[in-house]
Nucleic acid binder design. Sequence first.
DNA 1: TTGCAATTGTTATAATTTTCACATAATATA
DNA 2: TATATTATGTGAAAATTATAACAATTGCAA
Lengths: 213, 213
Amino acid sequence: MKTLRVPEATVTRMSIYSRFLERLDRNGITTISSNEIADGVGVSPAQVRKDLAYFGEFGTRGVGYNVQTLLKYTLRILGLDQTWQLAIVGAGNLGQALTTSRGFNARGFHVACVFDHDTRRVGQRIGQLLVQPLGQLPELAQKENIRIGVITVNNSMAQEVANIMVQSGVQAILNFAPITLRVPANIEIRNVDLSITLELLTFNLGLKAAQSL
Amino acid sequence: MKTLRVPEATVTRMSIYSRFLERLDRNGITTISSNEIADGVGVSPAQVRKDLAYFGEFGTRGVGYNVQTLLKYTLRILGLDQTWQLAIVGAGNLGQALTTSRGFNARGFHVACVFDHDTRRVGQRIGQLLVQPLGQLPELAQKENIRIGVITVNNSMAQEVANIMVQSGVQAILNFAPITLRVPANIEIRNVDLSITLELLTFNLGLKAAQSL
DNA sequence: TTGCAATTGTTATAATTTTCACATAATATA
DNA sequence: TATATTATGTGAAAATTATAACAATTGCAA
């Protein structure tokens, strides 16, 4: 087994390249160089080539990359040549936004159901979906083949929801609650904390202010 | 000037430590060790100490850190000892979610106004705020002392909105459109692409599947 | 054909980040 | 007061990641 460890930063960039290639393809561009990709997404050309090299040889020397071919490979690499059924738990503002968002209903992703704990939200309609009671999660997760759970409940509920997801056979969790969740080691978990990003900004603004003193 | 470059990953963790310390403080815990912080947020104790060392010496050997003191320092370091006025442009689902979100209205942040290009959305109420026409951005940005702009419009509008923000004196931009924006070098910009995180998950799930073959 | 220009894939180098190990300092205890 | 214990701060080592440089390959034009 040739399982070379791939840096997470590389995977992140693969996702960016892939989306850039989609755009090129839509615009009818058939060939592209690492230089142009680099320019388009704001990294160095060497970085682009190095990243791709983790997965194989996709280009032709002296020519560049075929957009369609490379796009297909990036999708395959990212696991997007199949459909991933998502369940969103927490039908608040953020949950609603994600349920109907294009990012969550494209490139192999499909929001299959939405749950909420609050009985006032249950039955409410979001896009095509009706909000289901949280208790239905185990059953529906199985029936709909949910492999990814998205947590958009508040902090106090988040761990409990994660537990239910794990029990329901979910393989990966995307957590928007700004809290560190405990899950078994075989569950993939990723946290999205929007305020962290905001605080990165203020830190850097603070640095600049300090430097200009 | 002792401007040691601080890794972005360190700043990210500072933000995590800071939030963890807030929780400890709320729970009345007064002292904590790097070990306990590490446990609480899922990093190594050496990492915690190394991160803090970028900014000074905050602990007492043999004892640990005073929670309140360290919390205060982390907030200061992150630039959160002041108020940051935000403007959100794009009053769709995500914009609405962020406008009322706690992450965007705590720890020094305050959503001061919301804008939209679409006249059907203008005047609509989100929490305490009324959606303003995009044309008002330059004027309101000045009046409300907006330093951070948040872009939650669709791809095709994002660059234009960024331009307007820059012209309006905004210093930092948080961009949720999955597209690479061009801004002057003196503007801090950060992209949040939620589908990238999703694709990180599927990449890793794919790896696991491959490894179990 | 032959030589030139373009562009990849890859090896070597540099830079960055994390981990490790321990000297140092504070507290508690006998 | 001496000793044991705890836990920080930090310098050195290891690991990781990015950059640079270039040999190899392709296509094109003379």
